[in-house]
């Protein structure tokens, strides 16, 4: 068992977990300290960044220049403009992309689309890891294998179910509360929850099952039920993994196109940014000036999410499963 999951962290670790060896960890410098390593890291970082950087730079270049010269010519002939962004975001003309509305939709889809599977997966992962019942392993294997059911094949049956059972409900909701449009996010949320669950359960199970059995046994001896163990021990200890997975799920939902194509209505009521961007790309070949700026607009939120939750990565997804 590794010590990682239980390295004390004042915010997330409950008192009953024994403090471990942080001070020594700080003292010992154990990197592979060689200049070559640093150079290699730098090279990888640069290679990985250049494509995005090129796109970023292009998004600020005048439209006709994007088409005719490479973005690196910027360094010899610097010409920048905000025109692409202002067209994509604020232009009031009917043919402009008007991404603002789709931006709201993306948020309204991505937040519940992350929270719902996350909560359900936490519950299920706990059950698989710490509740003993017949057929536990078999069930877990089935859930794991479900990861590979191709999304494409699940679309039609799911849509059929939604049309039969969810649509009357949506209409009723709209009639009761006219505020809420008849075109709702609900099907998209459920679809994302379903498609995100197998991987979420698999990853969280890996972390949660690595929590030492004695901690849980001790709580049990004290008379704690499953509910208490789940809330007082599992959730705080698994927080880094949960946060890490939340980031990934958020990114997947935010960047999804296929689910949106089928389950959102495609109108500004519910369609997310990706759907709009795909339309922009579609009609007139390569409209680089719009695509580049649009791509960066859609990138902002994922980056903010990553920055704000990044500290959890230090402890990280699956860190607890690191054992020999």
């Amino acid at each position: 068992m590794s010590s990682v999951a239980f390295t004390p962290d004042p915010e997330v670790t409950p008192d009953e977990v024994a403090p471990a060896v942080r001070t020594r960890a700080d003292r010992v410098k154990r990197r592979l300290t060689s200049p070559w390593a640093t150079i290699a890291a730098l090279v990888i970082a640069v290679v990985w960044t250049i494509p995005t950087f090129g796109l970023l730079l292009s998004s600020f270049r005048p439209a006709d220049q994007i088409q005719t010269t490479g973005w690196w010519t910027f360094f010899s002939d610097p010409q920048l403009t905000l025109a692409n962004y202002s067209e994509v975001l604020f232009s009031s003309s009917a043919s402009s992309p008007q991404l603002g509305e789709y931006f709201v939709n993306s948020l309204a889809i991505a937040i519940p689309g992350t929270l719902i599977p996350l909560v359900l997966a936490c519950l299920a992962a706990y059950a698989f890891a710490w509740v003993k019942f017949k057929g536990s392993s078999t069930l877990f294997v089935i859930v794991f294998a479900l990861q590979i059911v191709p999304l494409q094949m699940a679309l039609i049956p799911l849509l059929q179910l939604f049309v039969t059972f969810l649509q009357p409900f949506q209409t009723a909701l709209h009639e009761a509360v006219p505020f809420i449009s008849e075109r709702q996010y609900l099907p998209v949320w459920i679809a994302h929850a379903i498609f995100g669950l197998p991987l979420a359960i698999f990853l969280l199970h890996n972390f949660i099952s690595a929590i030492p059995a004695d901690v849980i046994e001790a709580a049990r001896v004290d008379g704690a039920g499953h509910g208490q163990i789940f809330f007082r021990i599992i959730l705080p200890l698994a927080m880094p993994a949960i946060a890490s997975f939340a980031i990934f799920q958020f990114l997947w939902v935010w960047n999804d196109l296929l689910v949106a194509l089928v389950f959102s209505t495609g109108t500004p009521d519910t369609a997310p940014l990706t759907q709009r961007l795909a339309e922009l790309a579609g009609s007139r070949g390569e409209n680089w000036e719009r695509l580049t700026a649009g791509a960066f607009v859609s990138l902002i939120i994922p980056l903010i999410v990553f920055f704000s939750l990044q500290r959890y990565f230090v402890r990280g997804l699956l860190a607890g499963s690191a054992k020999g």
Binding site: L123, P157, L161
Partner: peptide, 26 residues
């Protein structure tokens, strides 16, 4: 123990059955 098992697994099981198991069989 079968009660907490069902409470913890029921929602996921329900969603996965309609959303993935059924399409997989189909």
């Amino acid at each position: 123990d079968s009660k907490p098992m069902l409470v913890f697994l029921l929602p996921s099981a329900l969603l996965l059955t309609i959303g993935l198991v059924y399409p997989a069989i189909r």
